[in-house]
């Protein structure tokens, strides 16, 4: 995962509303298939919610990295 090239970063740290997952949904709708997105969230719940949504809609969940007080969720749009 460390070698994955990030095409787009969404910095949703501190975003209460609409929140990190909504930011991811917004972005994934607007980018090209094949784009790798990194979602930064300071909300621990995103590490569960975002992968669950990614898998449900059929995109590729690449992984999660721990940051300093935040998490980085990486996803690839595949359809």
């Amino acid at each position: 995962m460390t070698n994955v090239k990030i095409d787009k970063t969404i910095d949703a740290r501190g975003s209460a509303c609409p929140g990190p997952l909504m930011e991811l949904i917004k972005t994934i709708k607007s980018v090209e298939v094949g784009t790798v997105i990194e979602l930064l969230s300071s909300e621990k719940g995103t590490t569960v919610d975002a992968p669950a949504w990614i898998k449900k809609v059929g995109h590729e969940f690449i992984g999660i990295k721990d940051g300093d007080g935040y998490w980085s969720i990486i996803v690839k749009k595949i359809k």
Binding site: A16, C17, L21, M22, D49
Partner: peptide, 10 residues
């Protein structure tokens, strides 16, 4: 609602 709860604000 688009995310996994009824509003963005928990």
């Amino acid at each position: 609602y688009p995310i996994n709860r009824l509003h963005a604000l928990e």
